[in-house]
Simulated assay, not measured.
Amino acid sequence: MPVWITVVFVLLVVTSIVAILMRRGGGRGFGSIDAASGFVDGTLTVTGVGAEGAADKDGRRYCTVSGTILGPQTAPTDVYGHLVLGATEPSPGVGTDLPVVYRPGKVESSWRFGALG
């Protein structure tokens, strides 16, 4: 078999692997949430906070929050999720507004903490 065929095959395999990794969020800018991916900004108003556990070895603390998401293109939607806090971040309290992003029409299954941009 000619050497050039082997080289082309190896290049195709490497290119495919790189494309898959970048698509899954391994590359810079890929896998991020932006307006082009159909997400919009909203606000989660905290209605309940679960008990925090002790900090892990990196100083992170985990707590469960429940609340209502308000935003454009959606009716108020009740959700819950887990929030990771740094060692110096205060725990959210009832009534705290947190930024979230979500896909309109799929708020319950697509929302995440954060903001676009």
Rank of each mutant, 00 (worst) to 15 (best):
M1I: 08
P2K: 13
T6G: 12
V8E: 04
F9L: 15
V10F: 13
L11K: 03
L11T: 10
L12M: 14
L12D: 06
V13Q: 00
I20F: 09
L21Y: 11
R23D: 11
R24I: 03
R24Y: 07
G27F: 05
G27K: 00
R28S: 10
G29T: 07
F30E: 11
G31E: 05
S32Q: 12
S32W: 05
I33S: 02
I33W: 03
D34C: 07
S37V: 01
S37T: 15
F39S: 01
V40Q: 03
V40H: 00
V40L: 08
D41A: 14
D41S: 12
L44V: 10
V49K: 01
V49P: 01
V49Q: 02
A51R: 14
A51E: 15
G53D: 14
G53Q: 12
A54R: 12
A54G: 14
A54C: 02
A55Q: 12
D58S: 14
R61F: 06
R61P: 08
R61C: 04
Y62P: 02
V65A: 05
G67Y: 09
I69R: 01
T74M: 14
T74A: 15
A75V: 13
V79K: 01
G81D: 08
H82I: 13
H82P: 02
L83C: 05
V84L: 11
A87K: 15
A87Q: 15
E89G: 07
E89D: 15
E89C: 05
P90L: 10
P90Q: 13
S91G: 08
G93C: 03
V94A: 09
V94N: 11
G95Y: 00
T96M: 03
L98W: 03
P99V: 04
G105C: 05
G105Q: 05
K106F: 12
V107E: 00
F113A: 00
A115P: 00
A115M: 12
A115N: 09
L116E: 05
G117I: 06
